[in-house]
Design a protein around this nucleic acid. Structure first.
Length: 354
DNA sequence: AATCCGGGGCT
DNA sequence: AGCCCAGGATT
């Protein structure tokens, strides 16, 4: 009887999904090796993010910056703007730090061991193992949400997450083969993404349906168990969308740390239990009667809006003016883009007579 | 160990 | 409307 890993690799040989950053099992057999830069970039983008959401961003980044040296040389604002909409913006800040460290400390080549990769910004236990296994074919064990789910079912682990993490990691490590570790790592994650899904797993076509302990019990849809999460509170705020007579928008780059850190946004109040006025400049602010709703990781936001036409000599206390040709709504994180989309039509044509 | 960080897809 | 996440940094 073949080892469990062999059965999964056989399945992967047939069912591996094509992805822009992936070297499939067939090409690997011909000796093709993945570019560590592309593996790293894709794995960082895939942190807490689905394949469908990542694809367009990956294509755009690799077109603009084909090598890690190209990315390292890019202006911060360009990278943050291209990352806008993908979320978890600390990833983008660490992406640049990491690229520059690879160039300056490692001569432009990613280190090939898990331990060395772990020292780089934005590369933690999961990503270090993924790069070592996929790009450098080292027998490292990859443990992400998919693997935890697959292991909890294969071994019928009823301990709730996150307490079960060590146990699930141990199960995963016990299955990692010495042969084709890169393909195996991707195979387990593909299995979790396509067959061993959170709800309604497709056990009938699963390559591990026979050894699966949860399927024996009929508990596969209940696993992994999780401890209940706290309910999300509602916060309120006000955002100010001001446009000068020459068409320039009043925007600010947010502080490097914290929520939406380093991203472009509309100046506004702090977000708390109740909305409070905090105009960035004295002006005839109007209430368009529109409320933007947005949900972050740990709270719901209800954002009131104010709009104003600002005089040519306006001197705001916060933020700066961005000329119309330099302003791309796609540079904004989603909540800020929602605010723009909600009121953009309420601004009239630009007065070019000054 | 607990908390802080987006956003999209699914049911 | 609530649920699920292809995690890492910070404290």
């Amino acid at each position: 009887m073949p080892a469990l890993s062999s059965e999964l690799l056989d399945w992967y040989d047939v069912h591996a999904r094509a992805m822009p950053w992936r070297v499939g099992p067939e090409a690997r057999r011909r000796g093709v090796r993945p570019d560590p830069y592309r593996v790293w970039l894709s794995e960082v983008m895939l942190q807490q993010t689905t394949v469908a959401a990542v694809k367009a961003y990956f294509e755009r980044f690799t077109m603009l910056w084909p090598t890690v040296a190209n990315l390292a040389a890019a202006p911060d604002a360009a990278v943050m703007g291209e990352w806008a909409g993908l979320g978890y913006y600390a990833r983008a800040r660490n992406l640049l730090k990491c690229a520059r460290e690879v160039v300056e400390v490692h001569g432009g080549s990613f280190p090939g061991t898990r331990a060395e990769l772990m020292t780089l910004p934005g590369i933690g236990p999961y990503t270090a193992s993924a790069i070592a296994a996929i790009a450098f074919d080292q027998p490292e064990t990859v443990v992400d949400g998919n693997v935890e789910r697959v292991m909890s079912r294969l071994h019928a682990v009823h301990t709730p997450l996150p307490a079960a993490k060590p146990e699930l990691s141990a199960h995963a490590a016990g299955l990692t083969p010495q042969e084709r570790p890169g393909d195996y790592a991707q195979a387990v994650m593909d299995l979790g993404a396509t067959i061993c899904t959170p709800r309604s797993p497709a056990c009938g076509i699963c390559p591990w349906r026979t050894p699966c302990a949860a399927r024996d019990e009929g508990t596969q849809a209940e696993l992994p168990k999780k401890t209940l999460k706290a309910a999300k509170p509602v916060r309120h705020g006000i955002a100010y969308l001001g446009r000068r007579t020459d068409g320039a928008w009043l925007l600010e780059t947010r502080p490097d740390s914290g929520l939406l850190g380093g991203m472009l946004g509309w100046p506004g109040s702090a977000w708390g239990n109740a909305p409070q006025d905090a105009p960035p400049v004295s002006a005839a602010w109007r209430d368009p009667g529109i409320e933007v709703r947005h949900t972050f990781t740990h709270f719901h936001l209800k954002l009131a809006l104010r709009v104003a036409d600002l005089p040519a000599d306006a001197e705001p206390e916060r933020g700066g003016f961005v000329a119309p040709h330099a302003f791309r709504p796609s540079d904004l994180p989603t909540v800020m883009r929602k605010a723009f989309d909600a009121v953009a039509a309420s601004f009239g044509p630009i007065d070019r007579t000054g």
